[in-house]
Design a protein around this nucleic acid. Structure first.
Lengths: 337, 337
DNA sequence: GACGCTCATGTAACCAGTTTCAACGCAGCC
DNA sequence: GGCTGCGTTGAAACTGGTTACATGAGCGTC
């Protein structure tokens, strides 16, 4: 008792027959309408409409070698961090008639390599990767398929793939400098596991630019609001006094904010909290979160444009370093101020 | 100065020639390896490896009529609400060897219809839709292409497409009942525009189940944390006294929480705040947010399974209503309690 | 030894488009 | 009137796979 999948879709030949023209003419109406006479075109279009003709993407792809689909490999969607970038990529690609398939990797390089293979199998023309830490298999895959690939969320002009992103280390430095400039010396650093995450690694490296009299204590937990809260709880439980919390990500900073409030510790009076990313919600927390703005949306747009140029015009993407910017809001204050 | 796209990829014929077998045999090695003799298979596999053969998805799709790609139309990715569902769909589809293309609509039915056409153009085999409010064009499209389509985030057994979701009205009722049960009578309802959003409309309808002595005052704003904060600010500015804030979405509830804290109004002592969704972060806010749990992740999983069954085995999806559950945490308290 | 069977493999048609090349009609020009 | 050239159209080859059908080898049976 299977379902009959409708009366077989009309194809080019059907349309050609109905319009009493050749398949070549129908194809022309589809691709280069201006070369076919108005009257003929009208007939063909009428036939297409009547038969509810939808051209097969596969058949077209087989000839042109163009699937018009790109793939993105990102750690997770369940997190505001990548959402706006992906949103921007997807929407900008749309302007070029390109689509995006998103695959999540859970920060596991093996899963990433496997999913990359899967994306290639469905015929993507290009790949967006997050960061530069990848499984050898994936590098090899990109190498011998010569598939266009751009790295986002990271900038390194010397990397073997074009990187379109920002300088995470510099962002880390800026965040730290802000706190140090406010007189904070005992800083709790809240960060997610850096093992497979070079963005985090770089930010932490930026934090290490602290003067000698600054002492940083690290608390590691998951890259979620709950993770941030947990890290703050650990810091509090350690009994050590902190002037400020420096978070490698706004997502965690939100958790820190919540946990401090729960503990009755006033921000920024008793302790400052610094984020890094500038998520949309960072501007409306209580207190509003000081952070370093990462141009997530612009990055997505630029990456999409570069990729479009690559697959459409064969001009390979070039590295782009977008500026970050310190956003001083309410969650940081001069020590003792 | 264009880039030479490598030496043309090897195809089936090339492999066949190299392995000294026919194309049919190579195809068999790919699809039904067990029917080809071990020694032959070995030769073919060696040839494939040497030539870095990657089978063309398009060519395969053209024959089987299967692209193995599904499409999802969602309002936005830039929002925790859909993220975990999409995440779940994507990951469950992966188990069936299916991929997901995500298209965002910005809640505009026209954009949705246009993007749906785009998805069909690239050959998706099925569509995930959010809610039941769609442009006529989209309905017509689904109608005459007979493309499998399931609706998520909504449940209505009588809708002409299978709905896999939850009862939004019931969830609204539960949220309201909780507040009313705590003795709250003057309730500020914070919600996003319902014009093109039936989920919101249903939740609001659920709120209307209030007893006669309960007075609801609506404040409408964007479906973002900032939107929630803005709505709360409006409520406060109105000067009217409220016992509780009832939010049609956790995202907005977060904003309400922040705004109340900013205004120095204690939650839940002075006013209760109720969410609806149970985002992961709802459990770690300060105070932790009382809400109605929506099974977003399970919904995604079930929708993916139903869709897989549909496109693989031609068994159409059937409506599924998943249970919601009241989550009483810290942001709600008995009036005057 | 002929017959029937299974198993492995090859041949060629087929899917739904695109594209090359040839042909045709008609205008402009010498 | 014949030549050139442009604009329009069609026939057929082609893309890279899958698959129905044909072939033939090897083996068991009577």
């Amino acid at each position: 008792m299977t379902v009959r999948r409708g009366k077989k879709r009309a194809n080019l030949r059907d349309v050609a027959r109905a319009a009493e023209v050749s398949v070549a003419t129908v194809s022309r109406v589809l691709n280069t309408p201006d070369v076919v006479q108005a009257e003929t075109r009208r007939r063909v279009e009428a036939a297409m409409a009547e038969l509810h003709f939808v051209r097969s993407a596969a058949a077209r792809a087989i000839n042109t070698g163009r699937s018009k689909i790109l793939g993105a490999l990102i750690p997770t969607l369940d997190n505001a961090i990548f959402a706006s970038t992906i949103d921007a990529i997807e929407s900008r690609l749309g302007d070029f008639g390109l689509s995006l398939v998103v695959a999540t990797t859970g920060e596991d390089p093996e899963v990433e390599a496997r999913k990359a293979q899967g994306l290639l199998d469905i015929g993507v023309e290009g790949l967006f990767l997050s960061g530069i830490t990848h499984h050898d298999t994936l590098h090899a895959l990109i190498e011998h398929t010569a598939v266009p690939a751009v790295v986002i969320s990271y900038y390194d002009a010397n990397y073997h793939l074009p990187t379109i992103g920002y300088d995470n280390r510099e962002a880390g430095r800026i965040a730290l400098a802000h706190l140090v400039g406010l007189g904070h010396r005992r800083i709790a650093v809240v960060h997610n596991p850096a093992e497979h995450n070079d963005r985090t690694r770089e930010r932490l490296a930026g934090f290490e630019s602290a003067p000698a009299d600054v002492v940083l204590t690290r608390f590691e937990s998951a890259l979620t609001v709950a993770g941030g809260a947990r890290a703050a709880a650990m810091a509090l439980a350690s009994g050590a006094p902190f002037d400020a919390f420096l978070c490698a990500s706004d997502v965690q900073a939100l958790g820190v904010l919540f946990e401090l409030q729960r503990a009755g510790i006033a921000v920024p009076e008793a302790v400052s909290v610094m984020g890094l990313h500038d998520l949309p919600s960072a501007a409306v927390t209580a207190p509003r979160l000081s952070t370093v703005h990462l141009p997530a949306e612009e990055m997505g747009r630029r990456a999409a444009e570069a990729m479009a140029d690559w697959v459409e015009n064969e001009v390979p993407a070039r590295p782009i370093c977008l500026p970050t910017a310190l956003k001083i809001r309410e969650s940081t204050r001069r020590r003792g101020g």
